[in-house]
Design a protein around this nucleic acid. Sequence first.
DNA 1: GCTGCATGATGAA
DNA 2: TCATCCTGCAGCA
Length: 286
Amino acid sequence: MVLRGICPTVLAVPEGHTIHRYARLHRRDLGGSVLRVSSPQGRFEHGAARLDGRRLEDVEAVGKHLFYRWEGGRTLHVHLGLFGKFRTHRGDPPPPTGGTRLAMASDGVTVYLAGPTDCSLVDPGEEERILSRLGPDPLRVGLDGVEVFRSGLQRRSIPIAEALLEQKVVAGVGNVYRSEVLFLEGIDPRLPAGDLDAEAADRVWRRLTAELRRGERSGRIVTVDPLEVGARTRGELAREERLYVYKRDGLPCRRCGAEIVRWTPRTRAIWTCPSCQRAEGPAGSL
DNA sequence: GCTGCATGATGAA
DNA sequence: TCATCCTGCAGCA
């Protein structure tokens, strides 16, 4: 048997699409069931004991945050941070690794969680505090999302590249999607967020929505149009063919051949094509 | 067996 | 701006 791509139950990339996918899969696999809950590592022992033997009613994703709703009104909050991973096992699971913070098991499915930034029971006040730090999530249906996003950008003078990582501006975008979406829209990452006109902001929102949605369905980030690299479907693309700019510094732009450059605004690096990304679109200039 | 690295976020200074 | 937390894996000796 040939291993093809990423095991669908292990998603390596915790941006918003991953989180929403986990919510959907865990709802499907564990929702409605009475679960055995434990903390093999011990760091969530007390919380796990309070959930053990209860029914999981629903799983909800907001940005990069997961909320597991249990009967009796208890809510488990999970944030994967940079390292967090879920693994799903059907049938008999292997023994958990030493870092397994949380194990949730129904009769047929076991889910392990390792490396989260947060895994804790939250009361309504804490949940509200978490949600208050989040802006609109393109993966949640909300008609006013784009307007909140637009006004969030307007109020910021920081570069658009930095604004896109602020979860208060848009919830769920991470370092890969920000690089790729700014490339796809031909926007210079240094452009002050407030300088984007409404039309450009709308385009960015629509592009984020489309890309995150596709990522949620497929479980991987593939922004490249397969036709541009001689493939018929995105599934045919090799790992190194899936992105336009992210981590491709020194390589030629897939569209114009110019050298992709890496730029570090303050903390995290972003990759751009200096030729395709000028000001706020292909027609503009900085 | 080490070392370095990673798609995140926070709190202190 | 820096330090810190979280884990697993690839790459290298």
